[in-house]
Simulated assay, not measured.
Amino acid sequence: MNPIDESEILSGLGKRVKLLRARRGMTRRVLAGEAGVSERHLANLESGTGNVSILVLAQVAQALDCPLAELLGDETTSTPEWLSIRRLLHGREPTEIERALRAVGELFGGAHGQAPGFRNRRIAFIGLRGAGKSTLGQMVAAKLSAPFVELRAEITRLAGCAPVEIQALYGSNAYRRYERQALEDTLQSHQSCVIATAGGLVGDTSTFDLLLANCLTIWLQATPEDHFTRVLAQGDMRQLPGNRNGVDDIRLTLESRAGFYAKADLTFNTSGKTLDEAFTGLMGVLHERVPMVETV
Rank of each mutant, 00 (worst) to 15 (best):
P3L: 06
P3R: 06
I4A: 06
I4V: 15
S7H: 09
L10Y: 06
G12W: 02
G14D: 06
K18I: 14
R23Y: 04
T27W: 01
R29N: 04
L31K: 05
E34M: 13
R40D: 10
R40K: 14
N44C: 08
L45I: 15
E46W: 14
S47L: 15
S53W: 02
S53G: 05
L55I: 12
V56F: 08
A58W: 01
A61H: 09
A63S: 10
A69Y: 06
E70P: 00
T76Y: 06
T79I: 11
E81I: 13
E81D: 07
S84E: 14
R86G: 08
H90V: 00
P94L: 05
T95I: 03
I97R: 11
E98K: 13
A100C: 11
A103W: 04
G105I: 00
E106G: 02
L107C: 03
G113Y: 01
Q114L: 08
Q114M: 11
G117D: 15
F118C: 08
N120T: 12
R122L: 13
I126P: 02
I126F: 03
G127V: 01
G127F: 04
A131D: 05
G137L: 07
V140W: 06
S145F: 00
P147L: 11
V149S: 05
E150W: 04
L151V: 08
E154D: 11
T156C: 00
P163R: 09
E165P: 06
I166S: 02
A168W: 00
A168E: 14
G171A: 10
R176F: 10
R177E: 15
Y178N: 01
R180G: 04
Q181F: 04
A182Q: 09
A182N: 10
L183C: 09
T186C: 13
Q191E: 13
I195V: 13
A196F: 01
A196L: 03
G199E: 10
D204A: 09
S206R: 09
T207F: 07
A213K: 14
N214R: 12
L220V: 04
Q221M: 14
A222Q: 05
D226G: 01
H227A: 12
H227R: 05
V231C: 09
L232G: 10
G242P: 05
D249C: 07
D249A: 15
I250V: 15
R251N: 12
T253D: 07
E255N: 02
F260C: 04
K263V: 00
T267S: 14
S271R: 04
S271M: 09
G272I: 01
G272A: 10
L275R: 10
T280N: 12
T280V: 14
L282Q: 08
G284C: 11
G284D: 14
L286N: 12
R289S: 11
V290Q: 13
P291H: 13
T295M: 13
T295W: 05
